[in-house]
Simulated scan of single mutants.
Amino acid sequence: MDDTQFIVLMIYDIVDDKRRAKMVHCLESFGTRVQKSAFEGFLTKKQYEKMMTRCKKLIDPKTDSFRVYVVEKFVDTYSFGIDKRQKFDCFVL
């Protein structure tokens, strides 16, 4: 199985406090919070698929938004300002 990791940016806008709290808890398992409603993780394909399955169940498509961006090349990403992540952060699930 391919264990290549990719940078994954997860962004949400959830109106219900309870669903939002569940989303935060879920995303904390897969990445690091980089802004109030944005998380970044270094995920394998298997981890990505697990995260997507869990997160899709938490949104109401009529009122909420959940966007996911996969960045395949680390060299193409830049971070300025406060940055608590480490280049090789890894979340094992």
Rank of each mutant, 00 (worst) to 15 (best):
M10R: 02
V34W: 08
K18P: 02
M52I: 01
L58C: 05
K62I: 03
P61N: 05
D17T: 14
F80S: 11
D16R: 13
G31N: 08
M23D: 06
L43F: 07
R20I: 05
R33E: 02
H25S: 13
F39W: 15
D13W: 11
V24E: 07
R54G: 00
K50H: 10
D76W: 08
I14W: 14
I59Y: 01
R19G: 04
E49K: 13
D13L: 04
F66P: 02
S65V: 08
K22R: 15
V68L: 03
Y78T: 01
Y69T: 01
K36F: 12
M23K: 13
E40I: 13
T77W: 13
I82G: 09
I7V: 12
S65R: 15
Y48S: 03
I11S: 15
D17R: 13
D76Q: 15
F80G: 09
A21S: 14
F80K: 01
D16Y: 12
K36N: 15
D64M: 10
T44I: 02
D64P: 12
V15L: 12
M23H: 14
E40N: 05
V8A: 06
A21P: 06
F42V: 01
K36D: 10
Y48E: 00
D16K: 14
E28I: 03
E72V: 00
E28Y: 12
V70L: 08
I14Y: 14
Y78F: 13
K22S: 13
S65K: 14
G81Q: 12
I14M: 14
H25M: 05
F74N: 07
L9H: 14
R33P: 10
E49A: 01
T63I: 05
K22F: 07
V24Q: 04
D17M: 05
A38G: 15
I59R: 12
F30K: 03
F66R: 03
F80C: 07
I14A: 12
F66W: 10
D13T: 06
I7R: 14
F6P: 05
C55T: 07
P61A: 13
E72Q: 04
F39H: 11
K45M: 02
G41W: 01
G31T: 07
Y69V: 06
E72A: 05
V68R: 00
S79R: 13
F39Y: 15
G41Y: 06
I14C: 09
Y48N: 00
V68Q: 00
G81L: 06
V24R: 11
K56P: 00
V8T: 06
F74G: 05
S29A: 04
R33T: 08
H25E: 13
V70M: 06
I11Q: 09
T53A: 03
K46Y: 00
K56E: 03
H25W: 06
I7M: 07
F39Q: 09
K18N: 03
Y48M: 04
V68Y: 00
Y12F: 15
T53G: 04
R54H: 07
Q47D: 09
V15F: 09
